[in-house]
Design a protein around this nucleic acid. Sequence first.
RNA 1: GGAUGUUUAGCUCAGCUGGGAGAGCAUCGCCUUUACACGGCGGAGGUCGUAGGUUCGAGCCCUAUAACAUCCACCA
Length: 862
Amino acid sequence: MLSKHYDHHEVEKGKYDEWKKRGYFGTKDLTKTKFSMVIPPPNVTGKLHLGHAWNTTIQDIIARYKRAKGYDVLWVPGMDHAGIATQAKVEERLRKEGISRYDLGREKFLEKAYEWKKEYSETIHDQWKMMGLSLDYNRERFTLDEGLNKAVRHVFCELYKKGLIYRGEKIINWDPVLKTALSNIEVIHSDDQGKFYYFKYQIVGTSRFLEVATTRPETMFGDVCVVVNPRDERYKDLIGKKVINPANHEELPIIGDEYVDIEFGTGAMKCTPAHDPNDFEIAKRHHLPHPICMNEDATMNDLCGEKYVGLDRYECRDKLVAAIEKEGNLIKIENIVHPVGHSERSKCVVEPYLSKQWFVKMKPLAMQALEAQKSENRVDFIPERFEKIFTNWMKDCEDWCISRQLWWGHRIPAYYHKTTGEMIVCEEPPKDLENYIQDEDVLDTWFSSALWPFSTLGWPEKTEDLKRYYPLDVLVTAYDIIFFWVSRMIFQGLEFTDTHPFKKVLIHGLIRDEQGRKMSKSLGNGIDPIDVIEKYGVDALRYFLTTSTSPGLDTRYSDIKLQSASNYLNKIWNAARFILLNLEKEEKLDIDDSKLDVLDRFILSRLNKCVENVTLNMDKYDFANASTHLYNFVYDDFTSWYLELAKVKLNTADVESVRNTKAVLLKVLKDIVILIYPYVPFIAEEIYQQLPHHLESIMLETYPEVSKERYDEKSEMIVLDLIKMIKDVRSYKVDCKLAPNAPIELEIITNQRPLVEILLPFLKRMTFASKINFVNEFKDGNPRVYQLATMVIKDNVDKEKLLATLNAEIERLEQEVARGEKMLSNENFIAKAPKEKVALEQKKLADYKKQLQEYRDKKNNL
RNA sequence: GGAUGUUUAGCUCAGCUGGGAGAGCAUCGCCUUUACACGGCGGAGGUCGUAGGUUCGAGCCCUAUAACAUCCACCA
């Protein structure tokens, strides 16, 4: 039997292992329609946070819902090796031991990285278990495992053959701390405080100077010219002349190029082709060289002269500016705020850097993806607006730099001949491998993640899983990785599988702290899901995460909402407890339709409408709305009314009625438990196991179906009338400062006496009425009008008070009548509004008028 | 510089194709009624950011505008 209070520790115990052991998480029935998802593989860098909890709970709800709906569900788990992120963590750990990765060498370092992976994948598994995720562990994958490596090599080589992957020397974003290239989206631009240095460049052969401004003086060692706009009247005569670079006193040509903005700065720009993408383009147009002036760690190289070689770029900047100032060539320094790129991982300022890297040519792939959005291969974004974010990015994304100067990752399958230097790109290493050196670089993590929807199913092999489960039905992810991941899966999927990788992508937001700030390590405002689970239970956490949120929007963590979720679960728990206390063990309880009374028909009607609304919203992946419908049903219709009224029924001597009431209670409870089960599987299973005649587990149950024949407007109307009467008596008692259980007498006038008589025992019990009399007219008191009857609460209050309440009621009705008359006297309304709406308003007006008359009569009779 | 989102009760947020403003929490009052005080019952609380427009009718549609948030972007 259920304990008095719901104890999440007790409830959660042992269930997950049991489910897993019995194989409920796997696929089995090939006759069913398939429904497939893959988990967004978490990085093996550390513990999972609330964002992961949110993301995976959504998927688990979908998986559990779809299983209950009769689908053969596949949900593939896995993790991402997270190249840069993990390597940085491992290096950091080594550094604490006083070792660098170079001390270990590639192979030994990778061993350390695998140790790290093993450690954190265990943590992640523990967390998945805690969250109750129904993942199919038999199909778990890792982005660096052998199968996925094969997929990666295949894709690389195919794209290379098609000319969609190339190696080239371009300006890329260089992270000097991690010493690797980055892709454009791994660079975070922020407006930083900086300085704008104005220098004098002496024009050769004259004593005149050209003023040039820069934010990065240290790059002056790599300058090849000064550029002005040929339409700039001030400078156009200078084109072809030369100036002295104040940094190294070398001569620089002055050239003309339309790129330069006449209005900006001094209108004369220094040009550093190897350290700025625009400058690189200019140099290319003018056939100028592109000398590099920094090393990989952003220290100055030997191009910079003895005084500066080996200095860090910022140290060099300060020294150089001081030197130029000493020579009298510094004009001024302005403080400015300008956009500066930072490495997503190391946070350091990225250095635009000329370097030989591998790139994916994006245009053709992007075009294909954009075209597909207009076809049946489209991916539906939920909410829709995220499609625009995706297409806009696709439209003008640049080539994707995929090579990383790291060790932890998929090594690029390119080989260079030791003597000839010839390069070959091939899936399997060349037979005479001893004559070749493999490319040292590894691929961007996202290169392998992009293949995740199909590589996890065995692609490029034509596996049974691939045939049956691909493409996926839905992908669930937060909006912050649309560019990194979603878009890349889409174009790779289209390119290699000829179909969209998933039909729908469900986008959710990010979780913030209670003040609405992002959770971050530096703020120390992160919340560990484990602590929340300990305090409120995983069911409450899951319920909070998926119901107090709006599609696509961020949400705030809220202790209060978790409390509230936990209270709700306790409510269901106790409703179940009450029902089970009233059931005989193993009693066979089927609803006998011929014995249903108006209350039963009422609750079954409401239940079916609830099931309809919940299902509708579950199918739209609108979990907040779905849960609200259920919540309202549980609180209002079920526990506040049917359950309370059923207590009266259970106390009667009519054995058949009692039995049927129990059957209805059980039916409603069971449906509620199954409806809420996808959100809160642990408590649902616990209650379910207490029900008579249950299956082995709630995981094997089928979702309630709507029975429209249970819809019963008349019974609803009748019970709502009863409810209204009860509520009126209750508020009357509060108004009169009477105790809720104070005895009271009621008088009723009705022309539907048989119906009303059925309601009497309930009215009596719920209002604590000592007497209810049917009368033909009221001698005094305030008549209250209902659909079925008119009712007076007998009391001995004085006339004045009665008059006051009558007047208040009359005033309210007058307002209603005025509203209706105004609306209906509007010719345009009559003419243009839908007929049903007009009819409805007319009926309402008539009702109000009738009521008003009754109240006025009563007042006059006083 | 572009783009998107948000703005509704004290707080956090719902409000579905335009047809009488809702929930949770907080607050006030009453109640230990045998499922639940992690509770029940009854209240109070809103010019729906601002200004126009469309419409018989606008929280919802359109146009401006403000504030906040986020994303994208190579201005030296």
